[in-house]
Design a protein around this nucleic acid. Sequence first.
DNA 1: CGCGAGTTTGAGGTCGCTCAACAATGGTGG
DNA 2: CCACCATTGTTGAGCGACCTCAAACTCGCG
Lengths: 251, 251
Amino acid sequence: MTESSRYALHRPELIGSLVAGDLKIANAFQGSARRYRAHDLLIEGDCDHPYVYRFVEGWACRVRALPDGRDQCILIFMPSDLFAVKSMFVERHPDDVRTLSDCLIERLHYRDLHKLYREDTDVANRCIWQVIEEERRLHNWVVGLGQGSADERVAMLLLDFHARLRGAGVIPEEALKFLMPLTQQQLADFLGLTAIHVNRVLRVLREREIVAIREGEVRILDFERLRQLALPLLDLHERKLAARTVRMVHD
Amino acid sequence: MTESSRYALHRPELIGSLVAGDLKIANAFQGSARRYRAHDLLIEGDCDHPYVYRFVEGWACRVRALPDGRDQCILIFMPSDLFAVKSMFVERHPDDVRTLSDCLIERLHYRDLHKLYREDTDVANRCIWQVIEEERRLHNWVVGLGQGSADERVAMLLLDFHARLRGAGVIPEEALKFLMPLTQQQLADFLGLTAIHVNRVLRVLREREIVAIREGEVRILDFERLRQLALPLLDLHERKLAARTVRMVHD
DNA sequence: CGCGAGTTTGAGGTCGCTCAACAATGGTGG
DNA sequence: CCACCATTGTTGAGCGACCTCAAACTCGCG
């Protein structure tokens, strides 16, 4: 994903500022990296939490534990995401954030980032962008959970992972496989399904030779059919992109 | 809801700024009010859209129309909400925004608000707060859609409406009834259910004398049992508030 | 080798959906 | 004023997607 497509929806007059802010933020976080093990608790829900994070390596998620044992995974973070940007404004987050794999993550005290945020419009814009981007993903996922069947949700999720990993430069543009450090139970918690049902959906996708998942590696065997599956759930912008690609292929 | 509980989660050093920003924004929007009829299209998805809105009267919602006819309502707006704050940063929104009832809504060109936003930290903070608050509601609703049964979702939604209307001063603090200008179909589109099933859930709530809905008016007959129903889906902050109230009642 | 975590499969149950019909309501035009 | 119609709400019968419970299998690891 190029810078221009990453910020595709943004007001053009802000894009320069976003790119600049990205660099400045990378600089500000420089040197604060820490290693975390898989399943570490980064943020405990409803506790004072003064840090903002910048993801370098690995995956993490925001997850709500219901009092009766159910879990809902709300957002997944991967490299190049900032998260807990909201720490600059709120004292506590209502949910936990946990690593899904071993991670390398930078962090900064919110006061330090907020100082930069006040002094430098580029930094501020880049922070806002992160929040807006998160909200966009949440909108999409509300649609997925509210209207999508199990297969549609799985297809949508895999496409989202794929696009984000390409956008972050974790895998090459043309790659059709990637590592996904989630158990089927964790997938299920995100998808609002049971692990057993996720397993069955994945089996069907494998049998139909659309996607094969083995030992944490996702291999997309038929990108076009995968996108067909998810199509009804995609937002207008993504749907237009999809239409354009299909036209290109058919030309 | 008092100012302090409205901004309960926020960093205390920012609360003064939020209150001030609220006033300044109210001033800036002053005089721009327009009337809309129920079911008007305020924002058409994926079209250039240069306005930010401030809700004065009535309800509206952000809704995604899937290509096969399904609809998912993503967020509901009511008095005192700002919306499309993101217009300051993005050119187009991927979804439609429609009025649910007759409305009185103020609006401002994004450039005018963005000027204020840059010049006045209070205005900026108030805008950020709106985005963060929306994201909080989206988190909660992802949990509702992902893990909630039909009754739990309905209970959660009604409690949310009730709390927000009280917070906005539309109904008095102690009120147990309010007007809800949604058809069962629209409720269903938000809840990710069919209208038929919503109807059955509402019937059960009526028979159990928990909530009665007639002609657009919601009457909460047993607040405590309604909250019990929704309890598993509430976030930690709300759950703590609920626990405190119960303790107060039992003391 | 035995253990635990994760995956896979089977059998049966249930929540919410589909399809169909009918009742209440309110607006419209004759 | 009433007949008509569209919209919304209500109810029944049957079905299917997804869940529950239970068990076996794989694989890395101590």
